[in-house]
């Protein structure tokens, strides 16, 4: 069976201070799907993402990546399969140069030197950041940092990409470039975001989280048309689906 699918069953989790973060979350994502996870602040998006990579272990329920359950013993394999892009690139770029940072994962996988070089070059080329390879990460702009952060994950050749707020803190052009870049990936993608327009552009399917549960799960276009649902989940229509601010006409179908 493919490693590209994700099955989350009845997932529940509470933080040590007693906050219930997830209450029975269930969904399944199949090979090659691109899914947006949206919801108000504190709806449980980040907590859910943390489970996909085994950073948090569920109080009850289970997570399976392909046919492998996420448990302590399977973590190394899971983390190789599921590439995670963090919200703050500064958390993700910790080596002294861009090249070494992108190489960090492949080196830890124990790959031979030429293979590492090929992968690093390929990943950096993919995100159009090869020219940055000798620069220290803290000297990059926000957009460059994001691109390199994505390259660090790509170099591991993951099957599934999990991203937390990929478009936060980017200027409109950098955001557009990011969307175009993500659109070219064939990985199974899970994107937690408040940027509903990005979800509209990239994801065919959207899961709305609300108070630690799945409030809705379906085709993005349908979900974003359901104003009542969006309102109760602390969301509103993506700008592209709202009326034109000048003439009031609705541009979207």
């Amino acid at each position: 069976m493919s490693h590209h699918s994700i099955a989350v069953t009845d997932l529940a989790f509470a933080y040590p201070d007693g906050t219930d973060a997830l209450n029975g979350v269930t969904f399944e994502i199949t090979h090659g799907e691109s899914v947006a996870i949206v919801g108000a602040n504190g709806a449980g998006k980040s907590t859910l993402l943390m489970h996909l990579n085994g950073f948090l272990s569920p109080a009850s329920g289970s997570v399976r990546i392909g046919d492998i359950p996420v448990t302590k013993g399977t973590l190394p394999g899971i983390r190789k399969t599921v590439g995670m892009v963090f919200q703050d690139p500064d958390d993700q770029l910790f080596m002294p140069t861009v090249y070494e940072d992108v190489a960090f994962g492949p080196v830890n996988l124990g790959l031979p030197a030429e293979e590492i070089d090929t992968r690093v070059t390929e990943a950096l080329t993919r995100v159009d950041a090869l020219k940055l390879k000798d620069r220290p990460p803290y000297r990059l702009s926000g957009g460059e940092k994001r691109a390199v952060a994505i390259a660090t994950v790509l170099a591991m050749w993951p099957n599934v990409l999990v991203m937390d707020e990929p478009s936060s803190n980017l200027d409109p052009k950098a955001r557009r470039r990011l969307i175009e870049l993500l659109g070219t990936f064939e990985h199974t993608k899970i994107i937690a975001t408040h940027d509903l327009d990005l979800a509209l552009d990239l994801c065919d399917r959207t899961i709305i989280m609300s108070n630690g549960t799945v409030a809705a799960d379906g085709p993005t276009h349908e979900i974003f048309r359901d104003d009542a649902l969006l309102a109760t989940s602390g969301l509103e229509r993506p700008l592209a689906m709202q009326g034109c601010p000048v003439c009031g006409g609705n541009l979207s179908p």
Partner: peptide, 17 residues
């Protein structure tokens, strides 16, 4: 940061190329 490192197979040794 530690999570990010674990994500990429960190096992206590920073290997330099």
């Amino acid at each position: 940061v530690y999570l990010a490192m674990q994500c990429r197979g960190f096992d206590g040794h920073v290997r330099v190329m």
